[in-house]
Write a protein that binds this DNA or RNA. Structure first.
Length: 417
RNA sequence: GUGGGCGUAGCUCAGUUGGUUAGAGCGCCAGGUUGUGGUCCUGGAGGCCGGGGGUUCGAGACCCCUCGUCCACCCCA
């Protein structure tokens, strides 16, 4: 008999972690919905073409795509991220702007799994389409910061940068290419290859031998157009006004090719791992156009759920919520009375579980203890004969009998304590 | 895709230079306790030692392959 296990890079999220996930998503939802963002649920797979717009130089597109042909002969891909889907949805439905949406769900990338990196990984995020105002950039960044704070995270650092407009990017990219080419011998082999594909990405190299060269490389800020420079300056001033702490990082280029102007990244300094970026985003003015829509500015961020939870673990905050029932019914008379009591309590919105298979009282009490319930209700032959039920608060060491018709009230008052 | 570490009970792990019937703790089940959990005591269930091949009289230990997992590189959330 073959025993199956999860595919590489995927896993089962069981209790108590699963409840924590849900709580995470609920907190995120409340933060962004209170800021006017509406939930969008795009499909998990789309026409491959949607994601090819993310850029030919991105490995997310060239190497890591989960793509396949469906039975209708369509080229399909599991989404590697959700920004492209949101833009596609915008073009498809043409909602009025500003369009502020949030999402939560799994994405897929065919990568080698390691700590904080899975083939199926969850992100929560927001996107806004149709607004150019730098104050929106600041709002978006501030919301992410607010969310991290809400989770209880403290060791999170924000890095910001501007990649300029299309023309700026090209000029800067050319300048980088020239600079690195002139010092090619000092560059690592990997970075030399990266240079031919996307010079900007060389700045992202973590290889030690590249660092000296990278540190002395031309800065993007010297290549920004007046418009882009002003925009960036306004974003920074707004962040200051909002009290959001940040550091400007000239080397922050981010992985996807569609970014323009503002980019940002949140890093957990509590994480001792290769992957410390727990969230990031930026502007992608132009992406909607690439997907066949009208010229529309866009900005957003995505936060990695798994990584953020790792950061929470590292800081020892945001524990899994308690999902225990309040009451556990022990019935040694066959179980039918327990069924009736459970039904009664559930109809009165009191959470309750019970034991099955008519096990011994000792076994059922053990189950009651394990359930974490605050109260055990005990029904034996004596109780049935007397027409009452024993109420046993689990931590008191005491218990008392109560008539059936007063049970709900008794439990309510007991749970108040 | 590249490199390294690790795969023994549900979980965490022991298991000597290859040598009888593979162990511990926790968890689980039952009993001690003829109705009462969390402490304690006793007992029990539970293993194709990841899979395949090889070396050997003999392999959980050694060799090869493979799969999985973890970590790092690459890249990214």
């Amino acid at each position: 008999m073959t025993v199956f296990s999860t595919s590489p890079g995927t896993r089962d999220i069981l209790a108590p972690d699963a409840a924590r996930w849900r709580q995470f998503q609920e907190i995120f939802a409340s933060v962004v919905q209170d800021a006017g963002y509406q939930l969008i649920i795009p499909p998990m797979f789309e026409d491959l073409g949607v994601f090819l717009r993310l850029g030919e130089a991105t490995e997310v597109v060239t190497k890591e795509m989960y793509d396949f042909e469906d039975k209708g002969g369509r080229r399909i891909a599991l989404r590697p991220e959700q920004t492209a889907s949101v833009c596609r949805a915008f073009v498809e439905h043409r909602p009025t702007t500003p369009w502020k949406v949030w999402y939560s769900g799994p994405n897929f990338r065919y990568e080698k799994p390691q700590q904080g990196r899975y083939r199926q990984f969850d992100q929560v995020g927001i996107e806004v389409l149709g607004v150019e105002d730098p104050l929106l950039d600041a709002e978006v960044i501030a919301l992410a910061a607010t969310f991290f704070t809400r989770l209880g995270l403290k060791d999170v650092q924000l890095a910001v940068n501007s990649l300029g407009d299309d023309g700026d990017r090209e000029k800067y990219s050319a300048a980088l290419h020239e600079y690195f080419s002139a010092n090619l011998a000092q560059l690592s082999e990997e970075s030399q290859i990266t240079l031919t594909k996307n010079p900007l990405r060389v700045l992202d190299s973590k290889r030690r031998e590249d660092q000296v060269l990278i540190n002395a490389a031309p800065k993007i800020r010297d290549y920004l157009s007046a418009d882009a420079a002003n925009h960036f300056d306004s974003v920074l001033r707004a962040l200051d006004a909002l009290g959001v702490k940040y550091a400007i990082d000239d080397r922050l280029v981010r992985g996807l090719d569609y970014y323009r102007r503002t980019t940002f990244e949140f890093v957990s300094t509590a994480l001792k791992a290769a992957h410390t970026a727990i969230g990031g985003g930026g502007r992608y003015d132009g992406l909607v156009e690439q997907l066949g829509g009208p010229a529309t500015p866009g900005i957003g961020f995505a936060l990695g759920l798994d990584r953020t939870l790792l950061a929470c673990d590292a800081e020892n905050v945001f524990a899994a919520p308690n999902t225990n029932v309040s009451v556990f019914v022990v019935d040694t008379t066959g179980g039918l009375h327990a069924a009736q009591v459970c039904n009664l309590l559930r109809n009165n919105a009191i959470s309750v579980d019970r034991a099955f298979d008519n096990r011994s009282m000792k076994a059922q009490m053990k189950a009651a203890d394990r359930s974490g319930a605050a109260i055990a209700l005990i029904i034996g032959t004596d109780e049935v004969a007397a027409g009452h039920i024993i109420v046993r608060p689990m931590n008191s060491g005491q218990q008392y009998a109560i008539a059936q018709d007063q049970l709900v009230a008794a439990i309510r008052s007991e749970l108040q304590k």
